[in-house]
Amino acid sequence: MPGLSLRLLIALLPALSATTASAVETPTKVRYEEVVRSVLYMPMYVALNQGYFKEAGLDVNLKTSQGTDKGMAALLSGSADIVLIGPEASVYVANSESPVKPKVFAGLTATDGFLLLSREPIKEFDWNMLKGKSIMSFRPGSNPDVFLENALRKHNLNPKADVKMISNIGAAARAGAWMSGQADYAIFLEPEASNLEKSGQGQVVASIGREIGQVDFTSFTATDAYLKKNPKVAQAWTNAILKAQTYVQNAPPATLAEHISAYFPGISEAELVTTINRYRQYDLWKKTPVVEEAAMEKLQDMLIASGLLEKDKRVKYELIVDATFANEAK
């Protein structure tokens, strides 16, 4: 009976519409790895906590790599879709024989977030105090190491001769090594730096990022193949990051601490406020996800100065950065 069939179809329409809407609204899963856990990456945690990625149609699975080298390995092996790592890794891979090439597509931090700690209290720090001393740095070739070496050179110190760089301690073991008495000075991110200071294990005496200036330190990176296949995902990701970056600029530290506290178990919101205030004074968070060509040129200058990149191996900006998504971000 045609009338019955029509009535049945009309009755089923709401259910069919709901099913269709559900299929359309199913978020895209993204396997994401961050280099380490730090307040330096606060805009990312705000975006997660405030649902910016969910609003953009993304379901983000978060993992911590414990090092740019491990993050890049995850990207190249296909076990991660997007990673937050130092852009120096993209320069290295661009010059390698790897058929898989990574591309930076959005920036998060404007410069180095590591803070220099002295084991002994110092009233007025002078970089010449480092001469003849040991410094716990990071993995050789990593951005933390490169930025530290260039800060030393700025103050006429030779990283190879004037100081002893201790760079063979894993990321997760560095705080323990420092507390056990290794090195005279060390670089740490927040909240580790403030926690060590609070426990009487050192004093923050300088910001590496303030010494170097604005050079992108950590950025969101994917393979060129992934970006070509998933441009909508990359654009949605970058839009969410811009929204978080804009929010972070003026939000009260107490509110930001509340947003990110779930990512730092065991650390009070009051302690997080302290670290947020410290980082804010150094202007470490980017205001937009755009990674400028001048910043990548300066980074490669630093890699050359550290003996990690040959002058004739400098990589063109467009081979390591896809600026499309950051420029289109709304």
Rank of each mutant, 00 (worst) to 15 (best):
L108V: 14
Q214I: 11
G51L: 02
Q203R: 05
K70P: 14
L130W: 10
L4P: 13
D126C: 14
E149M: 10
A47D: 06
G181D: 15
A254M: 01
L8V: 09
R139E: 15
F147G: 07
Y92K: 13
G132M: 05
E297T: 06
T28M: 13
S194R: 02
S194N: 04
V93R: 02
L130T: 06
D184I: 00
Q66F: 14
A161E: 13
I304N: 08
T218E: 05
V163Q: 08
V39C: 13
T223F: 00
M136F: 00
Q249T: 06
N195E: 15
E124G: 07
V321R: 01
F105E: 00
A240D: 00
S5A: 15
D69L: 14
I122H: 01
V104L: 02
I276H: 03
S207K: 02
D322Y: 04
I304K: 09
L227D: 06
A172L: 13
P159D: 03
Y279I: 14
V100T: 03
L108M: 13
P252I: 09
L196R: 04
V46F: 10
A240T: 00
L130K: 10
G86M: 04
G209Q: 09
E310D: 13
T64A: 08
M72K: 06
G266N: 04
Y45K: 05
I208Y: 02
L12G: 12
R278N: 09
M302N: 05
S77Q: 12
A270W: 15
T275W: 09
A56W: 06
A89I: 09
M296W: 01
L256P: 02
F217A: 11
L152K: 13
A161G: 12
L116K: 08
M44G: 14
L319I: 12
S137Q: 04
G176T: 08
M129P: 10
Q249G: 07
P87A: 06
Q300Y: 09
T288C: 11
G141W: 08
Y32T: 11
K29L: 15
S96C: 07
T19L: 13
L196D: 02
S77M: 10
L130Q: 08
F147K: 10
R119I: 02
E88G: 10
S261F: 08
L117Y: 00
G132R: 01
K133S: 02
P289D: 14
L76K: 09
K298M: 09
A106Q: 00
V46N: 07
S79F: 08
K313Y: 08
V46K: 08
L12C: 11
R278L: 11
A270E: 15
I267E: 02
G266Y: 10
T274F: 13
K228I: 08
P231F: 09
Y185G: 00
Q235T: 10
I212E: 02
E25W: 10
G78L: 04
S98A: 02
